[in-house]
Design a protein around this nucleic acid. Structure first.
Length: 582
RNA sequence: CGGGGCGUAGCUCAGCCUGGCUAGAGCGCUUGGUUUGGGACCAAGAGGUCGCAGGUUCAAAUCCUGUCGCCCCGACCA
């Protein structure tokens, strides 16, 4: 492509709306433009990268045995009513009525396609002999983001690869899951991303039934816990800690239990300010309802409760914060004054609670707290659990190391669904004994735009983007220094033509602009390999080659240039490929 | 949805507090010339319903009210 014939609106200055690197650079390099909050146009350069990422995804899905198809973005609302997800999605589901003759039809724009695919497969596959099968598509998804943000990272419309597997057994599910997991590793590695597969919260199926693929980045919305020692990685909701249960002995320094007035102080922050104590001196008492039974959960004041851990510790199916009425019944006080001393329900505590000597907690009485609260004497525990969100420097659950807390961008998710959708939509098969069973499903998503945005977010320098060869919009940028010089231009045209014929993605900067201007643009858009023609070098029969990441160019004789470029590309590709797992 | 910020030329912004001639700058754009290896220089231009609506006033980019849009923090995100 010739620069003068395509559309690459680069910008020297950062648009004021853009704050994070990927957003700024994608705008400045002319990859995207915003249409409205949460919706972006992909300009030629940006679209080429998206398509390259998409193609890598496609190749790896095919390699893993998945079958590509294409489902409608328009979906009848009934499907979502059947699975209960109209409710579950709520506002996120974009849905509307359209007029058809004298009727109104209620439609939704697909936020994902579990319903559609389950309906389709359930209708047409009926026998265990036809299973397992894994199908996928690359489609635009629509989710009404309440708050779109971070440029292209969180939008209301995005391209997603979604795959769905259907099988007759857990073994079949596990096999596909494994294949998908491996395919994902290859995909992100091929895209040149630094990625981390992390254990994710997976609902009632439990175990390791869900992994998210994260790109560590400061601006990532997700928080993940990572142990560099053993490689353990999990998202914050899931992350366990290696803390041990402490002794449940009353502190020898236990002071007298005292009630203090704390009018209107209902939060840890308010109480700590009023009593001039640190939050870590306090016990936060949260009243939950676990399968409709109230339970008091004790967490150290400066810690954050993890509901999934609490649910698992209690062995409960459902868990939610209790309503005001329940709290009054259990504590005899309004919300904000709960404490373990004398509470009328069962109590479980996090490991870090009993070691607090002379703790401060609610007095189960309005406008009052207790000080000098000590385990064993004032409240009883038989054991403790890991009930809070992991923190940096917590012990690793898998080794002797310490956990690190990092932010990440979720680029992929693999998930064992089970039979939720196949039951709701009657996707059943007949086994060899003529018994009906719901199919066992898995789903596997990849945010294609997010691959590109994650690269922009993590691979750049002061001058602009730095693309890996595999996802770069063009592989080689040919820059004739002076397009009005016939010798220069003639050679540039020849290189452009020959590289193109050799299957290289080449961009020719044929603009009549000064050298410095073109170099700045070249760095900004980040094309991996730069070939410069003109000036003194040309008179000596030399041209210059430079990787985007090189400090200085190397001079190559004109006659060798094309061969050298091809060689360099081959070497780089091999180098990149060596980082892709088998 | 709660909190905060911002809407003036294609982009970045000044002017607004304290109302007053024809609304400014830099970059970009057009034309001509000089330049030509890291975002050149000179000259001449084009480009603005000051987000929109209403109000106050002799007079509104500026003050008031409403509204729309965008950004950030939080809540939410099978």
């Amino acid at each position: 492509m010739r620069w003068s014939k395509t559309f690459i609106p680069t910008m020297k200055e950062n648009p004021s709306d853009a704050e994070i690197p990927s957003h700024q650079l994608m705008l400045r390099a002319g990859l995207i433009r915003q249409l409205m909050a949460g919706a972006y146009s992909y300009l030629p350069l940006g679209w080429r990268s998206v398509r390259k990422a998409e193609q890598i995804v496609r190749e790896e899905m095919d390699r893993a045995g998945a079958i590509e198809l294409f489902l409608p973005a328009l979906q009848p609302i009934d499907l979502f009513e059947k699975t209960g997800r109209k409710e579950a999605f709520g506002n996120v589901l974009i849905n509307f009525h359209v007029q058809r003759g004298d009727r109104k039809v209620h439609l939704a724009l697909g936020p994902t396609h579990e319903e559609v695919i389950t309906d389709l497969i359930g209708r047409h596959l009926n026998s265990y002999r036809q299973l397992p099968i894994c199908v996928y598509q690359i489609q635009t998804k629509f989710r009404n983001e309440e708050r779109p943000r971070f440029g292209v990272l969180r939008t209301s419309e995005f391209i997603m690869k979604d795959a769905y597997s259907f099988g007759t057994s857990l073994e079949q599910l596990n096999t596909v899951y494994d294949q998908m997991y491996k395919a994902y590793c290859r995909i992100f590695a091929r895209c040149g991303l630094t990625y981390l597969p992390v254990e994710a919260e997976s609902g009632p199926i439990g175990g390791d039934a869900s992994h998210e693929f994260m790109v560590p980045a400061n601006n990532g919305e997700d928080r993940i816990v990572h142990c560099e020692g053993c490689g353990y990685a999990a998202n914050l909701e899931r992350a366990e800690t290696g803390r041990k249960a402490p002794a449940l002995a009353t502190s020898p320094a236990a002071a007298a239990l005292q009630k203090v007035a704390t009018p209107n102080a209902t939060s840890i922050e308010q109480v700590s300010r009023m009593l001039k104590c640190k939050p870590e001196q306090m016990i936060k008492t949260l009243i939950y309802k676990a399968d409709d039974k109230p339970v008091a959960v004790l967490i150290r004041g400066d810690h954050e409760a993890n509901e999934a851990k609490i649910r698992r510790a209690l062995g409960a199916k459902s868990l939610g914060l209790a309503d005001e009425k329940t709290i009054r019944e259990v504590t005899g006080a309004p919300v904000g004054f709960a404490g373990p001393v004398g509470i009328k329900c069962s109590v479980i505590a996090d490991h870090d609670v009993p070691p607090i000597a002379n703790a401060i907690t609610g007095a189960n009485e309005a406008d009052a707290h207790l000080t000098g609260v000590n385990v064993g004497r004032d409240y009883q525990l038989t054991t403790t659990h890991d009930l809070r969100m992991a923190l940096a420097d917590d012990a690793c659950p898998k080794c002797a190391g310490k956990l690190k807390l990092v932010h990440g961008i979720e680029v992929g998710h693999v998930f064992k669904l089970g039979t939720k959708y196949s039951v709701a939509l009657a996707a059943e098969f007949l086994d060899e004994k003529e018994q009906r069973h719901p199919m066992i499903m898995g789903c596997y998503g990849i945010g294609v735009n997010r691959i590109v945005a994650s690269l922009a977010e993590t691979s750049f320098d002061d001058n602009g983007l730095i693309w890996p060869l595999s996802v770069a919009p063009y592989e080689v940028l040919v820059i004739p220094l002076n397009v009005t010089e016939p010798d220069t231009m003639q050679l540039a045209e020849r290189f452009y033509k020959e590289l193109g014929e050799a299957g290289v993605d080449v961009l020719l900067d044929d603009r009549d602009a000064r050298a410095g201007f073109k170099f700045k643009d070249a760095d900004l858009i980040g094309v991996p390999l730069r070939l410069v023609i003109g000036g003194k070098g040309l008179k000596e029969g030399l041209v210059e080659l430079k990787w985007r990441t090189d400090a200085a160019p190397t001079k190559v004789p004109i006659v060798d240039a094309i061969a050298r470029v091809r060689e360099m590309l081959v070497e780089r590709r091999a180098q990149d490929a060596s980082r892709v797992p088998a």
